[in-house]
Nucleic acid binder design. Structure first.
Length: 646
RNA sequence: GCCUGCGUAGCUCAGUAGGUAGAGCACUUCGUUGGUAACGAAGAGGUCACCGGUUCAAUCCCGGUCGUAGGCUCCA
């Protein structure tokens, strides 16, 4: 038998007999970490049980590496599937991929899993892990694989195989009695998987299609050691504490009421302050950037949405029409058609462009009940909306201008974790989901891509996520429990202006149709505030905080002075409150801390005498005594600069 | 919209083999007048989400409705 030369990364090259497996090399070679669970052969992720037949470069990896962790997660999904099959033999398995730090597996089961079931499954997983079953794979022909899975009645696997390309190499993994179709690779044995936790179970549709069978999805996580697992689970717990639904209640920012309706938030005085601040910021920025503000009604005839195409594309998520004197009226689901009307109301010259109309109009959308989610997904929403009408030549600058505007906002809020997504059309949806003009789509998408590239903005592309009238840039963020949301959006519309006969006279005297950019850098104010609540964990920067200052008299004796101080601050526009309760100072401080109020002012005998205030900032025990004027000047500066740090 | 779970005081939560409920915090009043994360006492507060059914009797069991949670689907 001939030998092959294996260059083990981090060690020397060594000769091994042809057909040797990385697992054998790992066991026999000093210096290779016994924690390795997977390897790369010439850069390709490979099972440790794969036979090596050529000279190669071999890199061992443990599950601390990103690739290694993905494999561990994936193998844990298989481990779970095996446990499920043991406990519920009639289950049919489907797919079980890994995600970031998590995995899931979808099962077709007779009855959905309950929480007790998850505990049972987890216990069986521990058993299988202890059995330390070797995980091996075989390459099968299409026919062999089909007859195998058909025989064990794994219908979904049969369907998957039938849908795969003819030349796809089919791998079948086995661990003990459990066999699954899978691309792999996997860890060498079930004993490798020791530190895992099932997180939740829920429903999911087969192939993500709501017309298909409902499956049960179980999510879980898995790590190389107990410490990392605990750390991750702790992190999840910590994140839950930032949930805007929880903090929104604790800080009394907004609520929903059964008699008002689901998805229709009521903003309390505290929350309304935040909306006001957001609006003030946006108005300031937009005025500086040449936007003109408009106001339009909440209710409009169906005719308008017929023309815009919204009725065709979105009727199922609009509130049903109300009949007024025999005519259908709708709650407005977006502002654009109204803005188009305003554009068209007076003749436009090329000198008027770019023409930027902005409005924080409240729109109403009948989101499906199951889609509602705190402030992130609501049925009445205030859009941070504007439409920019411009020439093709102006398009690039305007588009980049909008992107820069929201980057500017993100900087103000210290938002760093987001992803810009260029959403493109899917040619398959032309004429249906997307306006039927393949050439124009291509041209516009290229324009947007080029604009982004020239501005050095990083982005990913996503086919099929465009609006029906054009491509868009969405800024994606994640809620504290990990759900993804579009926070800001910037969209090109090459179709609707024409439907509205929007024109301008160009410098050569001809009439032309402008392009329209729909943009909402702060998305909806509901969602943006929801996001900010989680982003700051309720610890808002001073300028945004509903309650900026609370005055705490040491005892009732100093209430008069405290009252004077509070009044003075209020007169300067500072959101100051007074806590006159007959409580000890420690108790008042505790309550102010729990309410996450930025600044506490303590006044007692000393302050009355010195005509000063002693301040204590949220989370900071050190105190500072200074004159009221100095204090209010400092506070006003911090507010005006919209400073983010504490 | 779909699947499953959940819904008890303003909030966080106990509780009842089916006999109409309880704590802590918050609130009100009284006492206390205190210097940096909980002063003490008393009081008030509930159609146990709603509607029906079973039962002598339902907060509890059954059905429906509404809301909500986790996901899926959708998101102009």
């Amino acid at each position: 038998m001939s030998n092959i030369l294996v260059n083990i990364k981090g060690l020397n090259s060594q000769e091994f007999p042809k057909g040797v497996t990385p697992l054998q090399i790992m066991t026999d070679t000093k210096g290779v970490s016994k924690d390795s669970i997977i390897c790369k052969v010439d850069g390709v992720l490979t099972d440790l049980s794969a036979q090596l037949s050529n000279d190669c470069e071999l890199q061992f990896m443990d599950s601390k590496s990103k690739d290694g962790h993905s494999v561990l997660l994936h193998s844990t999904a298989h481990l779970m599937a095996q446990a499920v099959k043991r406990l519920f033999p009639k289950t049919k398995v489907t797919i079980g991929p890994y995600l970031e730090n998590r995995f899931y597996y979808d099962f077709d089961v007779e009855t959905p899993f309950l929480e007790e079931d998850l505990a049972k499954i987890e216990a069986e997983m521990v058993n299988i892990s202890n059995e330390n079953l070797e995980i091996i794979y075989e390459v099968k022909s299409r026919d062999e694989a089909l007859s195998f899975f058909d025989n064990i009645e794994e219908d979904y696997k049969v369907e998957i195989i039938n849908d795969l390309d003819e030349d796809e190499i089919l791998k079948v993994y086995s661990q003990g009695e459990f066999t699954d179709l899978c691309r792999g690779p996997h860890v060498p044995s079930t004993g490798t998987i020791k530190h895992f936790k099932l997180l939740s179970s829920s429903a999911a549709y087969w192939r993500a299609d709501e017309n298909n069978q409902t499956l049960q999805r179980v999510y879980g996580t898995s790590f190389q050691n107990e410490k990392d697992l605990k750390k991750y689970l702790n992190m999840l717990e910590e994140q839950k504490k930032r949930d805007h639904r929880k903090i929104g209640k604790e800080l009394d920012l907004y609520f929903f009421d059964d008699e008002v309706g689901p998805g229709l938030p009521l903003w309390t005085p505290n929350g309304a302050v935040m909306i006001d601040q957001l609006e003030a910021l946006a108005k300031e920025k937009e005025t500086a950037s040449g936007y003109l503000r408009v106001k339009t009604p909440h209710l409009t005839k169906g005719e308008l949405y017929e023309k815009s195409g919204h009725l065709k594309h979105y009727i199922s998520s609009m509130y049903p029409a109300m009949d007024v004197d025999g005519i259908d009226y709708y709650m407005k689901p977006m502002n654009c058609p109204h803005h188009h009307k305003i554009f068209a109301n007076t003749p436009k010259s090329y000198r008027d462009l770019p023409y930027r109309l902005s409005e924080y109009g409240t729109c109403y959308r009948y989101e499906k009940s199951g889609e509602l989610f705190g402030l992130m997904r609501v049925r009445s929403m205030q859009m941070n909306d504007a439409h920019i009408y411009c020439t093709e030549e102006q398009f690039k600058d305007e588009f980049i201008g909008v992107c820069n505007l929201y980057m500017d906002y993100f900087k103000i809020f210290g938002i760093e974790k987001y992803e810009m997504r260029l959403s493109l059309h899917d040619p398959k949806g032309l004429g249906e989901k997307f306006i039927d003009n393949a050439e124009l789509w291509k041209k516009t998408e290229d324009d947007v891509r080029n604009a982004l590239k020239s501005a050095n903005l990083k982005f990913v592309e996503s086919v099929g996520d465009a609006a029906f009238y054009g491509p868009k840039i969405d800024v994606q963020v994640w809620s504290s429990i990990g759900r993804e949301f579009t926070l800001a959006t910037n969209q090109v519309d090459f179709a609707v202006p024409e439907r509205f006969d929007l024109t301008y006279n160009d410098n050569d005297g001809t009439s032309k149709t402008p392009l329209c950019i729909h943009r909402a850098p702060l998305g909806t104010h509901e969602r943006f505030i929801g996001f900010l609540i989680e982003h700051f964990g309720g610890n808002f920067p001073l300028w945004l905080a509903p309650k900026q200052v609370i005055v705490l008299p040491v005892s009732d004796k100093y209430n008069d002075y405290a009252e004077k101080v509070t009044k003075d601050l209020k007169s300067k526009g500072i959101r100051a409150y007074l806590d006159k309760r007959s409580e000890k100072i420690g108790s008042k401080i505790r309550d102010a801390e729990l309410q996450k109020i930025n600044i506490m002012i303590i006044v007692g005998e000393k302050e009355v005498e010195n005509k000063t205030v002693t301040i204590r900032r949220r989370f900071i025990k050190e105190q500072k005594e200074l004159s009221l004027d100095n204090f209010s000047n400092e506070v006003l500066t911090e507010i005006n600069e919209r400073r983010v740090s504490n």
